[in-house]
Design a protein around this nucleic acid. Sequence first.
DNA 1: TTTATCTGTCCTATAAAAGATACAGATTTT
DNA 2: AAAATCTGTATCTTTTATAGGACAGATAAA
Lengths: 294, 294
Amino acid sequence: MTRTAATAEPMKAHRLYLLLREQILSGEVPDSAKLPSEPQLAQEHRVSRVTVRRALDKLASDGMIERRPGSGTFVSGGQTRMPVVADLANALTHLVEMGRKTGVRLIAFSYVNATPTLAEELKLEPGERLQRSIRVRLIDGQPFSYLVTHVPERIGISYSEADLASTPLLELLERSGLVADKAQQIIGATLASPDVAAALDVEIGAALLSMTRVVYEASGRGIEHLQALYRPDRYSFHMELARTGDHGARRWTAADSRGLTEANENNEKKNARQKRPPLKRRTKNETGRDPSEP
Amino acid sequence: MTRTAATAEPMKAHRLYLLLREQILSGEVPDSAKLPSEPQLAQEHRVSRVTVRRALDKLASDGMIERRPGSGTFVSGGQTRMPVVADLANALTHLVEMGRKTGVRLIAFSYVNATPTLAEELKLEPGERLQRSIRVRLIDGQPFSYLVTHVPERIGISYSEADLASTPLLELLERSGLVADKAQQIIGATLASPDVAAALDVEIGAALLSMTRVVYEASGRGIEHLQALYRPDRYSFHMELARTGDHGARRWTAADSRGLTEANENNEKKNARQKRPPLKRRTKNETGRDPSEP
DNA sequence: TTTATCTGTCCTATAAAAGATACAGATTTT
DNA sequence: AAAATCTGTATCTTTTATAGGACAGATAAA
């Protein structure tokens, strides 16, 4: 009786929306192609036409499809996907070379005790103090990655909170005399949690690229643990492989990986066209407690 | 009046489930740790206890948590995440070396006309005939990847449909005298569509790792276009990076990438324990037409 | 023992998502 | 011109996720 609802979003409709959106952006459904008819979609996805309709409504309001009564639904042109970044190992290294404006927003900064997992991965004593920071990287003003980093306290104190907002962490670490020697990366995928979704300006439940990287110095001790989440529409890993060895062993090596997917200029326009309000900004307020609540 | 419902899944409950699941698998919540109490979780996430309960129910049926009345809810041991595969370039190459049983299930096989996007990526004439095959790879009987490959027809005829179900495509291509020279990979993330979800035995809307690979022969013509979708809980990309160059240039190269995340033997047990029915098997029936339908 | 804090059940109420259906208006096809 | 096939709309019903309680039994702490 006290409080009523919060948000509550459609479910099947929303999923279908995300799905179709993916197919369009990924080029799976070619530009200007005709989508299956509403009844057809309804049947294929085993939902009612009403639901299909809701999904299409959303797509239409994003400007991604065009609906012609009596004729059908068509993909609007210029949805070429994968607009932005790429690279394998050095991540953003050459972004700057390309003259794109990147930025960092520091979201959280604190000291915590290492969880068992963290300690193990960093090869530290469990319970050791770590400096934790959460940052969001922007490209041309648009967020594309959400970074949670853990650095041993003794190392972390060598730079200030402000430094973090301006300088890449690895550079900060090197300034303090540490030498990164090797690193390990694991790439996977996850769904966007509410916090991350808000920070990256995507919907909850969207697919995100995830990367976990642990950097070690020559002694073998871990000096940085990074958990990164990327918007796949703005960032993806890109690599060129060249064949090495003889025929028997099908073996490839990563060739130069600086091939960037060139930016799609249509994107600015597209993003402008699309209304993106329905996300409650809750970036910093991690508990999510609504002050207006009793 | 004909047909009634399909499935309809909770929303907040499901989200919470995914969230907690993530936290557990990622080690954010340590093994055997006590979760916050149900009322606490309810308050933190601003949902009712009923909802929390549903999420926990699901976790419990996955065998991930243990509930002790009067005491609390605890994380079951051995949830070390990222159980299965890994590697950067050669993907499955050393799986066999490790003695794990892999299998392939051929789901579809046909000839189609190249879509504009496909033609462009393969550097072919638009509209050229392509052989399309959809396969699902299994490891120890469990599906972990969904592969859609397109090969120019003239090349595709050199092997049979049956070959596909037993031999890696690249090997088939090489047998027919082609030499793969370079390849390009893009790694991203997507949501599972109904088809893929069914084939990979995940829920619709789950996060998947996606990889697009185009293989070219020395002449520059594309000989294989692969669109792969991976279950992130069973497969992830793994790479070791070593520092090269001098201090100024923070540059890394992919070192030997054969480091596999060793398999977690608990997994068999876990998967066995978990009931996995709620997915309508529709693997081959691509249209989704239900035969029981009028 | 008493008290506080858990989980396990059961119930009711409400809001809203999803389904089912019918029909009008636009196109395209035959 | 007629038929088939679209999208656009509107109404009505069913289903169900969620909220908000109340209460019993188990467990741990005081």
